[in-house]
Nucleic acid binder design. Structure first.
Lengths: 225, 225
DNA sequence: TTTAATAGTGAGTACTCACTCATTTTTAGG
DNA sequence: CCTAAAAATGAGTGAGTACTCACTATTAAA
């Protein structure tokens, strides 16, 4: 696991490769590059058009020749970055883990998946924060995020759940409820580790916390008679 | 359930009762009242000091005689509101449900709790949004929220989990992991209903979704041999 | 070479904001 | 009733913001 480039590296490479494509002018490209850089490090609201212009080595007016508003830059920038960088980056390891299906039990898949996701969030806390922030404030970005990343994860998970249910490894349950339970457990792990209860969480290792979570998800909290 | 006053009403009453207490001046009180009203309806960032002054029937300068900055008002306002209004309001029904322990199985408690929380969020979507927003941006508010509401919920849940585990109704598991699982499932329900997947969620009633969630939480997703 | 379109400029516009301070009003003590 | 301290005022300040526009430079076709 942990194969491939970091998000930071992927982003920079993407910014570089903006050269090749399309009939963008020199200036237009540097505006995009500057915007990506600034939005990714400080967030949309904290980046002023004056700052973007300075970073891009361009007059402020030039920005508005190519984009009709500041928000226009955001939308022009976020969609391709999300589709070409963020989504593959987020899903890369998930696919890899799911593809090792044959060798792994469902519990092992969950264990690997959760640990991998915790590492991913820990290594990209700043970007996660900023992405959530933008998703919170801008409907369009939230929609884009949901219709790309979320839908694809849902699709992948649905397939896996179906296979494992048919194989008799999982109980016959509503697929969407199972998916929600799996994702909820992950969100809970991330939230408790990073936001609500970091001290309590750290009393045991990530592996132990993940193991307890997977155990509960698989077998429930109730005692059987 | 759904007993007692709404959050809106509780807030207004609290604002009124500011009269009685402490050595606040007339003006100071109306600044607080106006701030509570505006912050609660529009959020901190969207409420200007000019607006607060106007609403309070006070000159803008008077605000800065009593509070050294705008953020100072926020901190002075949020702490008492959180402690005296929000926390009791949020916990009221939870206590009530937990106190009916003797009559209810753990599954029934979860079912009632989740349905009650879904109603609460649905009825107070705007305030939930604003509170989350402020918690996202202001560390102090996040800390206050965690050290009041969250800690108390955790305490209540820990007691219930302990009782039910000793009674043999729950498996002997790490208490914090069980709590996290319970809360994660709730967060998942709220998130899927309101943010990520409202259409898919609405294909079944809230009751059905809650029932599926409780089933999974109690008995897990794995098939037993 | 002229012309016409496009790209780029940066000072300027019109605005909002939190915060200040010289002035006025209110209050209280002698 | 006078006066001095305290409280309150609101126009003013300066730093910010996104965005405009009259103008210049560059390019490409006629």
């Amino acid at each position: 696991m942990d194969s491939g480039k970091s998000f930071e590296e992927s982003l920079l490479q993407f910014v570089e490769e903006l050269k090749d494509e399309s009939e963008m002018t020199e200036k237009q490209r540097s505006i995009m590059q500057a915007s990506i850089k600034l939005f990714a490090t400080k967030g949309f609201h904290a980046s002023s058009t004056a700052e973007i212009a300075k970073e891009a080595g361009v007059a402020e007016g030039t920005i508005f020749r190519h984009y009709k508003s500041k928000k226009d830059i955001l939308l022009a920038v976020v969609a391709p970055v999300l589709v070409k960088i963020a989504t593959p980056f987020i899903l890369r390891d998930v696919r890899e883990i799911f593809n090792r299906q044959k060798e792994l039990s469902f519990g092992e898949i969950l264990q690997e998946l959760y640990q991998n996701r915790l590492s991913l969030v820990a290594a990209n806390e700043k970007h996660v924060r900023i992405l959530l922030q933008e998703a919170f404030f801008h409907d369009e970005i939230r929609e884009t995020l949901l219709s790309t990343v979320f839908q694809e994860i849902k699709r992948l998970a649905a397939q896996l759940i179906k296979d494992r249910t048919e194989a008799g490894e999982l109980r016959p349950l509503p697929s969407d409820a199972v998916f929600r339970a799996i994702l909820s457990s992950l969100i809970g792990l991330v939230l408790f580790k990073h936001v609500t209860d970091p001290d309590e969480f750290a009393k045991r290792t990530d592996e132990e916390q993940v193991a307890a979570t997977v155990d509960i998800l698989l077998y429930g909290i109730a005692n059987r008679p």
